[in-house]
């Protein structure tokens, strides 16, 4: 069953069309990778799904509910969606533990002890148990991004949106974050990830969508889209990626 269904999405910024009649369907427990050049609309699409941006046309359904309806309580929708950002966006004034337990305690009204136990459990699982009381600035980029993923998971989301989560990381730190996403897939998490890591998209995604000028130009199983693309623009994009040594 479709967990997320976007139909005919349109988004403009100051007269520039960023999303143009975009359609996307994500079934439960599936991982969809969005690829495409910078400015092709990947991040905007994720931000629209999380209601951080208002769409200018089209509908977004989550679990069959039209969440693009302005009467919908956006805060209630966002509780079901976890989002991870390129620049981590951890709260610098809070410790790792407080970053993770903020939403469970304030949004879900869980007791501090319970929220902290869950946070510690999640941190232990990703090997960051010793960092519970550290502050974000004291962590490496890879550690910060793993904490950001844990923070999103602590809300027990139905859907995870990952916005180029490894783009700001040093190459040797990319692996630890990708491992975590791989584990999430194994646990059956539904994910939409915008990425520049073609090798990873091929490995982890059930479906790859190539975006260009705000539209899904081509989509399908990774072997097909990345291996035998049918569209000229996809081929052109992949050629440039290969020339840059990223595939």
């Amino acid at each position: 069953m479709a967990l997320l269904r976007c139909r005919g999405l349109r988004k403009e910024f100051a007269g520039q069309v960023v999303l143009d009649r975009l359609d996307l369907t994500v079934d439960e427990h599936r991982v969809v990778a969005l690829i495409g050049a910078s400015g092709s609309g990947k991040s905007t699409l994720l931000r629209c799904v999380n209601l951080l941006e208002e769409v200018d046309d089209g509908t977004i359904e989550l679990d069959g509910e039209d969440i693009s309806d302005p009467r919908v309580d956006a805060d209630r929708v966002r509780r079901r969606i976890g989002m991870v950002f390129q620049a981590y966006n951890l709260f610098p004034h809070l410790s790792v533990l407080d970053n993770i337990t903020l939403a469970p305690r304030r949004v879900h009204r869980r007791a501090r002890a319970e929220a902290e136990a869950q946070a510690r459990d999640l941190l232990d699982r990703v090997g960051l148990g010793a960092k519970a009381h550290a502050f974000p600035d004291g962590l490496s980029g890879g550690q910060q991004q793993r904490v950001a993923i844990v923070r999103a998971l602590a809300n027990s989301p139905r859907l995870m949106l990952l916005d180029e989560v490894t783009s700001a990381l040093d190459p040797e730190l990319v692996g630890e974050v990708l491992t975590m996403i791989r584990d999430l897939k194994a646990d059956g998490m539904t994910m939409v990830l915008a990425t520049h890591e073609m090798g990873f998209a091929r490995e982890v995604a059930d479906e790859v969508c190539f975006l260009d000028a705000g539209r899904v130009v081509e989509s399908g199983p990774p072997e097909q889209v990345l291996g035998e693309p049918t569209q000229a623009r996809t081929r052109q994009f992949l050629r440039r990626i290969i020339e840059a040594g990223r595939l």
């Binding site: 951080l52 209630r76 966002r78 989002m83 966006n89 709260f91 939403a103 949004v107």
Partner: peptide
């Protein structure tokens, strides 16, 4: 954006 995305 990070805070709102958590449902706050």
């Amino acid at each position: 954006a990070a805070a709102r995305s958590l449902g706050l």
